[in-house]
């Protein structure tokens, strides 16, 4: 494709304009995180702190056992992601590539689980987890992920539906069994959407706040998101550590995204051939 200069100029202006919207809050958060308590509240706002206080980051990190929170968050994030990848690929495959009795009913049922308001199912779910002895453990945050989530299943199904039917028919003629078809033919094709799901799940779980809040009790079980929220008391907001930890917290998902980009770029078709 040949790109004219005018086209390039327009493209870059649009890209920069959008970048401003997406980036500015981060820049402002960073500036705030580097200020002294006095500078944060000076008016007019200062765009460059006199002496950037990088120690604010250390102070925020050390003010709570963030090392433990980090470990807990990692455990939950990694395990749920594995669980989601296994369960969702299976379930989505079942819904996308087969016709069976009650399929539409079951699929609507699946979708409907996305619409359940957590406010009112949370207490009965709490009771159930309590019965299992799971309260104040990471289990309520991890184990359900091994049974799939409607959002991921639905997303994956949409991708799977878009693959021509000839693929498995050919394999069946070659004598492959159903699981082999799934495992050997479809899993490799699904690299891009599976990566997508992994990325989306990591972010969701990494930032999940209400789940940990409700099911975890003492600090040794807390996750990063809970630690971040505890800078916000009933009467007061500790703006500097909040900004600092917000920025720290986005690092792991951003790293994941950086690596994942490669697989997503390949797309789904790249691997069909």
């Amino acid at each position: 494709m040949k790109l004219t200069r005018k086209y390039k100029f327009i493209m870059y202006s649009i890209l920069v304009l959008f970048s401003l919207y997406f980036l500015f809050p981060f820049i402002w958060a960073l500036i705030t995180a580097l200020k002294t308590e006095g500078e944060v509240f000076s008016f007019p706002p200062k765009f460059i702190p006199d002496v950037p206080l990088f120690s604010n980051f250390m102070d925020a990190w050390n003010s709570q056992p963030f090392g433990i929170y980090f470990k807990n968050s990692m455990i939950v994030t990694v395990l749920t992601t594995i669980g989601q990848l296994i369960s969702c690929s299976l379930v989505a495959y079942g819904f996308a590539r087969y016709d069976f009795k009650y399929k539409n009913f079951l699929f609507i049922l699946l979708l409907s689980t996305m619409m359940i308001p957590w406010d009112v199912t949370m207490i009965p779910l709490y009771m159930e987890f309590n019965l299992f002895g799971w309260i104040n453990t990471l289990k309520p945050l991890i184990i359900p992920a091994f049974f799939g989530s409607a959002y991921n299943i639905f997303l994956l199904r949409q991708f799977l539906m878009n693959i021509p039917k000839d693929l498995e028919n050919a394999a069946r003629i070659d004598g492959a069994n159903e699981f082999q078809i799934f495992y050997k033919i479809f899993l490799p094709i699904m690299k891009a959407p599976l990566t997508l799901i992994a990325v989306l799940n990591i972010i969701l779980v990494w930032n999940d706040y209400l789940g940990p809040l409700i099911y975890l009790n003492d600090q040794s079980k807390y996750t990063m998101a809970l630690g971040l929220a505890s800078f916000q008391g009933v009467h007061e907001l500790q703006i500097i550590p909040i900004m600092a930890m917000t920025l720290v917290m986005i690092i792991p998902p951003v790293i994941v995204f950086a690596f994942a980009q490669k697989y997503i770029v390949e797309g789904i078709s790249g691997s069909i051939k």
Partner: peptide
């Protein structure tokens, strides 16, 4: 640009409300 556009999606809802 791809990373920049994606960046905000990485931030938790709690932090988004506080920053904005």
């Amino acid at each position: 640009f791809r990373t920049i556009f994606y960046l905000p999606a990485v931030v938790s809802g709690v932090a988004v409300s506080i920053i904005w």
